[in-house]
Design a binder for these strands. Structure first.
Lengths: 216, 216
DNA sequence: TAGATTGTTAATCGATTAACAATC
DNA sequence: TAGATTGTTAATCGATTAACAATC
């Protein structure tokens, strides 16, 4: 099982394939060719075949791909069924919204603890899980051994918090804070969300659109 | 002013430069070389110089870059000072969290309206702006002419809502819904957030880390 | 002036697209 | 079998890195 290293560009497209295949399955579509899928997703058929063949031959010549089977394969590649004990750090409105909004369970994440430095939240429950003070973090992690942390704390607090969590054995961060994890922790998995960057990118795109219109 | 088309890869790095330069400025650092900045950001110095020179020569040989001046230039390139009337569609917990969490004003976005299809929210105010029923959307847009919509509605509702908003003259979408805008609307700017995709990517990275450990 | 560091050109590397033989 | 569509190799394209002359 010596998997060759697959590029980040390919990995970033997998969730999107997974999502589109889910939609197709919901609509009762059982088979699809790379050509049809590429049209729906705005990609080339070549790219889809190339991407999928990083992991194996999931299609059938002359037929295409079985939607449900391919979706399941991609789910496996992503590791969605692997159980991942997860803690939420920061129970402000962003943390709460994410907790309520995301389908964690169907991706293998189970929320086992919620922490906030605000004493006022202590005891309150979100989605059935009690909020604890961050002081309880060390003891909790030694006992429960969570592997993932969702970081919804202010920028100021995040740098120290990350160090603390890495020391406590956290292996993956879903980072909504303004701090760039990852530059200094090569042994953990990090997915930075950086909503501010996203909004600025939109800002640029709108301006570019405007300029383009003017030039035509 | 015939700007050559700058690649998306470069654009996506600009907000990150902007953020790091902001941090440096906060720490009282006035000048920085591409070499120093590259070390802090985990890039190559070449890439930084290459990126910046898409837009002009902002540095000075033998000296480096003036932090404050460069930050301002990047802000200009991104179009942050351009005023953008913005509406929020969907005042559920995600919409509320985003509204409270983001520094819209400092990026030129002003929230002028909030809409939800839930009658129960009508009249409530968030950040000083009243929530209206989505029925009021048409009249509001014709009068106020907002250019940006933040989309925080369920997947089911989003497809129709996007069509409606495009018809009403919305030129940019910050899309938190599960629906992929952009495949069918080439004349609007779209920034898809897709938190689910991000979480799945983390899932893969964690698994890859695990496999790597086992192989060593 | 000498040292440092940019702006820019050239070389390399990787990702995407095209093409087509294999095969269902 | 004939038609369709994959898996895979080769060609192209673009992005990143390296190198260095220009210059502050």
């Amino acid at each position: 099982m010596s998997e060759k290293q697959v590029s980040a560009s390919v990995i970033r497209r997998l969730p999107r394939y997974y999502r589109f295949l889910g939609m197709l399955a919901e609509n009762g579509i059982q088979r699809i060719s790379s050509g049809e899928l590429s049209a729906k997703m705005g990609l080339t058929a070549s790219q889809i075949r190339q991407d999928l063949n990083c992991f194996g031959g999931f299609g059938q010549q002359g037929y295409g791909y079985n939607v449900a089977a391919l979706r399941e394969e991609i789910g496996k590649i992503l590791g969605l069924s692997l159980p991942k004990k997860t803690i939420l750090i920061g129970a402000g409105n962003l943390g709460r919204a994410i907790l309520a909004h995301m389908a964690f369970a169907e991706k293998g994440f189970s929320i086992v603890g919620i922490f906030d430095r605000d004493e006022g939240f202590a005891g309150e429950r979100l989605e059935g899980v009690a909020i604890q003070h961050t002081d309880a973090l060390e003891e909790f992690c030694r006992k429960e051994k969570p592997s993932v942390a969702i970081l919804c704390v202010p920028k100021m607090a995040s740098q120290d918090m990350v160090r603390r969590l890495v020391d406590l054995g956290i292996k993956g961060f879903w980072n909504f804070s303004h701090y760039d994890i990852g530059v200094h922790y090569p042994d953990v998995a990090v997915e930075n969300v950086h909503l501010g960057d996203s909004l600025m990118t939109l800002c640029y795109e709108m301006q570019a659109l405007e300029n383009q219109k003017g030039r035509e």
